[in-house]
Design a protein around this nucleic acid. Sequence first.
DNA 1: AACAAATGAGAGCACTGCTCTTGCCAAGGC
DNA 2: GCCTTGGCAAGAGCAGTGCTCTCATTTGTT
Lengths: 239, 239
Amino acid sequence: MVAARTARERARAEITAEILAAARVQLGEVGPSQLSLRAVAREVGMVSSAVYRYYASRDELLTALIIAAYDELGAAAEAAEEAVEDRTDHVARWMATCRATREWAVSHPHDYALIYGSPVPGYAAPQDTVMPATRVIVRLVEIIVAAHGSGGPTDTARPPAGAADPSDVVADAMAFIAERSAVDLEALPELVMRTLMVWSAIFGTLSFELFGHLKGSVSDYEGYFDQTVLRLAGDLGLA
Amino acid sequence: MVAARTARERARAEITAEILAAARVQLGEVGPSQLSLRAVAREVGMVSSAVYRYYASRDELLTALIIAAYDELGAAAEAAEEAVEDRTDHVARWMATCRATREWAVSHPHDYALIYGSPVPGYAAPQDTVMPATRVIVRLVEIIVAAHGSGGPTDTARPPAGAADPSDVVADAMAFIAERSAVDLEALPELVMRTLMVWSAIFGTLSFELFGHLKGSVSDYEGYFDQTVLRLAGDLGLA
DNA sequence: AACAAATGAGAGCACTGCTCTTGCCAAGGC
DNA sequence: GCCTTGGCAAGAGCAGTGCTCTCATTTGTT
């Protein structure tokens, strides 16, 4: 990726990007399942078979789009989070991140469906997608940790009555966090459990909104989302 | 739908059902986006154009499949809930309903994707689908109401500090419940809010599991789901 | 028996993802 | 300088799709 040397490589990189850009435009119009490789080929003035020189298959093009979408969402969320001036106001940082996530989702419904909707047929997300996919949750974890580090409430540090110790089921998640972060959560399995739950809840809420499952139950989607993530913050001990 | 009179009507109903059955089989194998009307036509020994006498389009066939899936899921959840002998053990009834939901989902991943994944292109769920779609949530609401009616904790009856009154954003949901149930929730907007949140969280969790977003974070999916819904019950004041 | 409606078969259109062959043209070695 | 190599685009073609139309046949009613 560093400064393409030969003219050929440069042209190749340029055309590859051009195809991807055209695909992103088409995706914004028609949705993942309707994305046609032939149509994007027409858009960039090529014949369909020529595109296969750059993307081996439609799935490979979709993978590139998935990565782009994850990165765009991650960038939007991070930018919003960093715009919060009072870095000690963890709730504000939390809300900013969540709101930016929703705003990106509602303004890019097809991209959202691509990454958080049903996966394409026999599709298994390649390794390239996992890193960009973690950008938002990594930010959220940082906020949660910061809040708890600054002596916030620790109600969420122990499981509720009747619930088993969650250490086992979140072991992988804790290993994942420990691997790519200096944060030490070893002593807080319940907090990790709650974080995973909240993470799922946020995207469950967004999916319900975008996929029409709240139709008839909620009219003010933005207000509902706000109230939701505010309560989720409370459940994590942020409020 | 009552006892088809003429032989023709009977035959028509039978063939319609036969096509739907073949479609269900194919759906179980390949997933919604790959479902081919021509293939199911071959399966039932017809030519593709003949199928159009029974389903006007592929979307209409998908709609029939959606209704069937909602009904199957609803029936499975209801059966599991009714199998709980101690009707006063609201947590047990809650867990049974949730577990049955997950079990149906993991054993019918394509049907699940069809109803809770990204909707097909320009698809707007027809009115016929909303009734069967509410079966599970209606059961859950009944359990929640029963628990609160029997003098359970009412922590969830008021919004947390810093959160606004949710009456506005859940107004539609309350009207929806009031319309098709004798339950009076007028005084409990916060409980309705929490119910909606939990509802979204459950399906967010299932979607994350089935669509591969928990890969690397959770290995024991069943255990994680159990712990999740148990905590959600607690958040609703059931525990 | 005669008519009309419902049904199935087949051809065909426009589209898809993908493969293969053909010819072109520029980059690098002699 | 020429000439070979290799990347590249174009086109044809294959198998499949949803859907429409026409035509013949079956079925039910009058």
